[in-house]
């Protein structure tokens, strides 16, 4: 019954126009970045290498598909959550707003099952968005710009990673990006369990992401201990995959923190939905 209900939820998602807004916006954004890089990518590289250019020259295919994929991920990891929330923030509250939740609750499935089926559907949608972002940023960029070494600007300086050392790093960064987006999707689902309309959970989730991101980027000591517990801090973990030596421990910790958020927020959504007065 849980799987059948998940299928129903997926059908509902695919029948809504807003589900395609995210994918469409993602496609347009990535194609725009690729176009901009093809037109004026050397300026971007100059920004990265300018500190060293008085004494050094950088030769070879610097503006390649790997760099473009990295740039796209860096630009979009902040914005893609907002596109996902448009769909996942509506999953429970949308049913309440339209009144279809009453019919759904009469089905031979528990309330926990209803939340889980919606969460599975949200997970699949998030996965599709991540894979689409990965396909466009990595494969399309490679097709247009070719392959090559990746030049990354880290806090320690400039790191150049050989092209044959990159595919697995992109794979892991995509997994971490998925974990980050999954956390956001589950957060909006949890807010959705509290709300009676669609707009509330979407706006609140966006506000939380913006608030946490600002706290995370503020260079004041008072927030130093708090930053570790903010999921937005760990949403940037995909970037440290491109460090050398590979920071295994930091990545595992961040992955566990994000997974912890997913589980915690899902339990909150289940708890809240089970106690919700649907007849009211």
């Amino acid at each position: 019954m849980l799987w059948k209900n998940t299928q129903n939820e997926l059908i509902k998602i695919t029948s809504k126009i807003r589900s395609y807004i995210g994918i469409g916006a993602l496609t347009v954004l990535i194609l725009l970045v690729i176009f901009a890089m093809q037109a004026d990518g050397k300026t971007y590289i100059g920004f990265v290498t300018s500190t060293f250019e008085q004494t050094l020259t950088f030769n070879g295919n610097i503006l390649n598909g790997n760099l473009i994929a990295f740039i796209i991920m860096q630009m979009l990891i902040v914005h893609v959550p907002l596109l996902i929330v448009l769909v996942t923030g509506d999953l429970l509250s949308g049913e309440l707003a339209s009144g279809t939740i009453r019919m759904l609750a009469t089905k031979p499935i528990s309330r926990t099952g209803i939340v889980l089926s919606k969460w599975f559907a949200a997970t699949i949608y998030t996965l599709i968005m991540t894979l689409w972002m990965g396909f466009l940023s990595l494969f399309v960029a490679h097709w247009i710009f070719g392959t090559g070494d990746l030049m990354v600007l880290n806090p320690d300086g400039l790191l150049i990673l050989p092209s044959d050392d990159l595919l697995w790093r992109f794979g892991i960064s995509m997994v971490l990006a998925f974990l980050a987006l999954w956390t956001v999707a589950t957060l909006s689902l949890a807010f959705s369990a509290f709300a009676k309309n669609s707009v509330g959970p979407i706006v609140i989730t966006m506000a939380v992401i913006i608030l946490f991101t600002i706290i995370g980027t503020l260079d004041v000591t008072v927030f130093d201990d708090l930053k570790f517990y903010l999921f937005t801090t760990h949403m940037a973990t995909w970037r440290i995959v491109f460090e050398d030596p590979f920071p295994t421990e930091d990545i595992l910790i961040s992955a566990l923190v994000l997974l912890g958020h997913v589980v915690g927020l899902l339990l909150l959504a289940i708890y809240r939905f089970n106690r919700k007065d649907i007849n009211a």
Binding site: T57, F58, D149
Partner: peptide, 13 residues
């Protein structure tokens, strides 16, 4: 001219 599949850093002078 420098031709390489990799990124090569050389001194400017």
């Amino acid at each position: 001219k420098v031709v390489s599949d990799n990124i090569v850093i050389l001194p400017k002078q």
